[in-house]
Simulated assay, not measured.
Amino acid sequence: MIPSLLPSHFLNTPDEIQSLIHCNITSVVKMTQLILKHMEARRKGLVLNISSGVALFPWPLYSMYSASKAFVCTFSKALQAEYKEKGIIIQVLTPYAVSTPMTKNLNTSLITKTADEFVKESLNYVTFGDESCGCLVHEILASFLSLIPSWAIYSSWVKKLLLTHYTNYLKRNANIR
């Protein structure tokens, strides 16, 4: 769940904070509790948690979404360290753009995958460690973004870019009015 696909300052986001926490954090914890005890008894299992590329470092103008997905990422990697020796794989996927109803069915492109494309490719990487972006192009994007210094990402210039150009891009390529 994302409060708004359009970037906005924290105090200007819709007041759905508790719903976002329940959907993005509480449900992951509770579902993991339910299934993990059965996997532990069988000494095998697979948990794939969906986080987001915006969890890899704090994203201004998407603060609640970014923070909630960072929780999913950290939680999943910690559980993988706890349960790996018990034959259970716990992997977190950190995709960037995937066209879904949550993203207002963004137009697909080289970077924006359909949900089916993303799932098909991400299943190829299940045994590749505790974290994966899920598809090669998102891994390349994550690598590129990791090279940008944080002072640049958090600059007023980038925030302005997000608020204007990225908002216009989303309005053109998603079903947003």
Rank of each mutant, 00 (worst) to 15 (best):
S122K: 04
M64T: 15
V29D: 01
T13E: 15
T94Q: 08
E82I: 04
S143V: 02
I17N: 07
A78Q: 07
A78N: 15
N49V: 06
G129W: 07
T13Y: 06
K104V: 03
M39T: 03
M1N: 03
S66D: 08
T167I: 07
T13Q: 15
K86C: 10
E40S: 08
Q18F: 07
G45Q: 05
V54W: 00
L61R: 10
D130K: 14
L46R: 06
S66M: 02
L6C: 04
L79V: 08
K120L: 13
L161Q: 12
L170E: 15
E121C: 03
N12T: 02
I2A: 10
T112W: 05
A78G: 14
I2W: 00
S52N: 06
Q33L: 01
K37Q: 13
S8Q: 11
L61G: 04
T100Y: 01
V29M: 07
F57K: 13
T127A: 11
A55C: 10
N124W: 03
A55M: 06
P58F: 00
N12G: 01
A70D: 04
L147A: 06
K44P: 01
K44F: 02
L20I: 15
S76E: 05
T164I: 11
M64G: 02
L170G: 08
A97M: 14
L170T: 04
H9R: 12
P101R: 03
H38D: 15
S156V: 05
G87W: 09
G134R: 00
A142F: 02
T26W: 01
F71D: 14
L161Y: 14
A41V: 04
K113W: 02
I25F: 02
H22G: 05
V98D: 10
C133G: 08
K113C: 05
I90H: 10
E139H: 09
N175I: 05
L46G: 04
V158C: 03
M31K: 02
V137G: 00
D15L: 11
N124K: 12
S68F: 04
Y169V: 05
F57I: 06
M39C: 08
S122W: 07
F57M: 14
T164R: 09
M31I: 09
K104D: 10
T127P: 01
L106T: 11
A41D: 13
Q91S: 12
P149Q: 09
F75V: 11
P58I: 00
L46T: 12
W59N: 14
P14C: 10
I148F: 06
I89A: 02
E139Q: 13
I153D: 01
K69C: 06
L147R: 12
I153N: 14
K77A: 02
V47F: 02
G87R: 11
V29W: 01
N24F: 00
I35S: 07
E139W: 08
N175D: 14
I111S: 09
I153V: 13
R177N: 02
G53T: 04
V137N: 10
F144A: 15
E16M: 13
I21F: 07
V92E: 07
Y154W: 12
L136G: 00
R43A: 14
N105M: 09
I153C: 06
Y83R: 07
Q18I: 10
